[in-house]
Design a protein around this nucleic acid. Structure first.
Lengths: 330, 330
DNA sequence: GCAATACCAACAAACGTTTGCTATTATGTT
DNA sequence: AACATAATAGCAAACGTTTGTTGGTATTGC
């Protein structure tokens, strides 16, 4: 079947411990035999069995990534960054998608631990689970959470600030009747962004009313449906803050289909700045976040924790979101 | 550290082979001890070490997926389908992105074999490598290739036919000066689609001239740049066939920025039908392919090969592409 | 009451590595 | 020439499982 270290040893009439030492660059083999071994291994097409290595080294050079949805370019870019950074350190990633389903997520979490991944990067499907993960022992980092008081490292964008500058932008441009479309209940980032929105509203003497916040799925279709619900609810609306760009794209679609002109009748702002937002036909005003860099930092922070660098010190990285004004706000 | 089968055995004063049999539902343990064991394992939080299991079973319940770019929704949806199908069979996937770089791809291929994945799903970075993979022994399936004469299973869309109906559509709508933007040299799908394009041209008494085909990257920016090159080359152009939707989106961007009206001055057609193509502001005419289903079939076919079902019979699945007429062609 | 038969549990080898320890050889010192 | 030292190679245990084989006990049939 697969050729092993013993096959190489037999071929050369040498003990297999020497093979191991030679191939791993450890001392205890003469330069001459090392070269013979390396040559033979090459010639015979020997491929070390990483399962066996992982078993004895208690290391798999593998990390698990659990995200809700790979089709959301926000996660796509993050995963891209993770893979890139992981590659540089010789790590591979198990990609798991939860579909925003907490049970699926738990299942994957269990499997990943059985596969003995060295660490886990996760965007929890809901806030409550998010908090529960403080008990898990595998090195783990939660995407885009930076609340105080728990044990994990933190890498993320300042969501509160992002929500604030988005909402303030709407208000500064004269919109006085904004509505908000967020994701499913209990999503951490959504709530943080809303907190920021509230702060901005307050500065303009307004409050955040319950009936001006709609929940939807984090997709274009979700945004369209939520927009329909809001616009049919009878309240006065002159602008929409979509909690991510896909939702905002859905809002744009609703407006287009219902003869509402953007940005005149209604202003629309998103969050994430996915690449499609910049398309000339779209020109979505949004909050930019450095997704690729976020992915890289996520992995690098996890890596440090895995390797036990810097003792028990926690890393706290908070990236600044940035307003990108395009054509969907006046 | 991690609690093992032996810990559970010691706790119960029973041999560890019994634990294994009990937990795997094999016979050789009484129902009574089985229940004691299952209960203890649960209580102690025992998680089987999949590395060790993989070592003895020679199975990892893991497949590797190598694609050029996860940010291309075409691959995103395929991966989505793969993950979904894999989950149902208890498989996890290693996601690797080659960035269209053949060397990166080879590297990943090597690593995946070292990790003893049970199979590999790959979209080769270039045509020449594509062909070379016929020698690899790990069960492997190549995304979207269906040429005759090699050893692998085939699952893909009929690219030649897709290229044909796209081009014929342009010609039927009265466009007589189409140009073509394809991906990097030696890409298999691109060439197949061009073959179809040539067939359509011939039916209209036209030929495929070399200077009417441009190469670009498989991205929006790549499409924009290639379009600029073509439009500045002095040839007459009334329509563009972008070999994928991202490229077509880039063409649209170029037209927009240069005052060319679509579909009047120039007709644009893409390929893939990514979700963004359907946006009301975009309305890209394109060739639809069932990407999610493709992903599912890819995994399921590989799975059969892994399990050795159906002897040595090869699976050949060819899905039909479909023309979706929107607003970028008249 | 005894042999034959089930059934169950334990032992031990194997999967393919790494690594601490010991045995051997070569080298250098006096 | 005898001995200490260093370098190299091999042995064997360990990582955490699975599984074929064996030993022991309870059950069955006569």
């Amino acid at each position: 079947m697969n050729i092993t270290i013993k096959d190489v040893a037999k071929e050369l009439g040498v003990s297999y411990s020497s093979i191991s030492r030679a191939l791993n660059g450890k001392e205890g083999v003469s330069e001459e035999t090392r070269q013979r071994i390396v040559a033979a291994a090459e010639r015979m097409g020997y491929q070390p069995n990483e399962l066996a290595r992982g078993l004895v080294n208690r290391i798999s050079n593998t990390v698990g990534v659990i995200i809700p949805d790979i089709l959301n370019p926000y996660f796509g870019e993050i995963v891209n960054g993770i893979i890139e950074a992981a590659k540089q350190k010789g790590y591979n990633i198990f990609l798991c998608t939860s579909g925003w389903n907490g049970d699926t997520e738990s299942e994957y979490l269990k499997i990943l631990r059985q596969k003995r991944v060295d660490g886990i990067i996760i965007k929890p499907a809901d806030y409550s689970r998010d908090m529960a993960y403080d008990t898990i022992t595998t090195p783990m980092i939660i995407i885009d959470r930076q609340e105080d008081g728990e044990i994990h490292n933190k890498v993320g964008v300042d969501n509160e600030q992002g929500g604030y500058i988005a909402t303030r932008h709407l208000l500064e441009r004269g919109y006085r009747h904004p509505v908000f479309i967020i994701g499913q209940e209990d999503n951490y980032s959504s709530s943080q962004r809303l907190v920021g929105a509230e702060r901005a509203l307050k500065e303009f003497g307004l409050t955040l009313e319950k009936n001006r916040v709609a929940e939807g799925w984090f997709t274009i279709e979700g945004g369209r449906v939520a927009a329909a619900r809001l616009f049919n609810s009878g309240i006065e609306i002159d602008s929409v803050f979509g909690i991510n760009d896909l939702i905002a794209l859905g809002v744009l679609q609703y407006c287009n289909e219902n003869g509402l002109s953007v940005p005149e009748d209604v202003g629309v702002i998103g969050f994430d700045d996915i690449s499609y937002a910049a398309l000339p036909q779209i020109q979505l005003t949004t909050i930019h976040q450095p997704k690729h860099q976020l992915g890289r930092l996520l992995f690098e922070t996890l890596y440090k924790e895995i390797k036990g660098f810097e003792g028990q010190e926690q890393t706290k990285i908070r990236l600044e979101p940035q307003l990108v004004i395009r054509k969907t706000t006046r």
